[in-house]
């Protein structure tokens, strides 16, 4: 990584601290989706924005070393398959597709409740965060290519 890539030292130092807090907040929103406003979609967008913050502050080359982009794409694609797998497990245990076959366990207003809803929230969160970040990354690659830099 060259020293000149990305933004100034102040932005990089602030980002280094704040990115983890943003990711933690996104995970909180996803895990508490069945108790408070939010859910898989909103939390996934928060995590994607944290990755985007990292990309804007440190530059495109750093993010390519930091994470493996095709691995993120694999997470995104397998989340869609996992969603279908939960639906098929609903057929196996409860008789209808996407049935909430775990809804009897846990107590209301606690983190451990609501059956398959938190599981589906986590799957959707993984899918949305990785998908949005991969699309933005691909768009930025496309932009350099078009500019002929």
């Amino acid at each position: 990584m060259k020293q000149s890539s990305g933004m100034t030292l102040i932005v990089k130092t602030v980002t280094r601290v704040s990115v983890w807090l943003i990711i933690l907040y996104g995970i909180y929103i996803i895990l508490h989706g069945h108790l408070t406003p939010g859910g898989g979609f909103a939390g996934g967008v928060i995590i994607a924005l944290a990755f985007l913050n990292m990309m804007l502050a440190y530059g495109r080359d750093f993010i390519k070393k930091w994470v493996n982009i095709s691995f993120l794409h694999d997470i995104e694609s397998s989340s869609a398959a996992l969603f279908l797998a939960i639906g098929i497990l609903g057929i196996a245990f409860s008789g209808s597709f996407l049935a909430n076959f775990l809804s009897g366990y846990g107590t209301l207003f606690r983190l451990y409740s609501a059956g398959t809803i938190p599981i589906l929230n986590i799957i959707i969160g993984a899918k949305v965060s990785m998908g949005l970040f991969v699309v933005v990354w691909a768009l930025s690659i496309f932009h350099i290519d078009k500019g002929g830099k």
Binding site: H34, L35, G39, S103, G106, A114, I117, N121
Partner: peptide, 20 residues
């Protein structure tokens, strides 16, 4: 559904096909 947030219980239980 056992979910305290009714919006989530609708989009992921009653209307899960829509989310799919």
């Amino acid at each position: 559904t056992g979910s305290a947030n009714l919006v989530t219980s609708i989009i992921l239980d009653y209307r899960a096909y829509d989310t799919l």
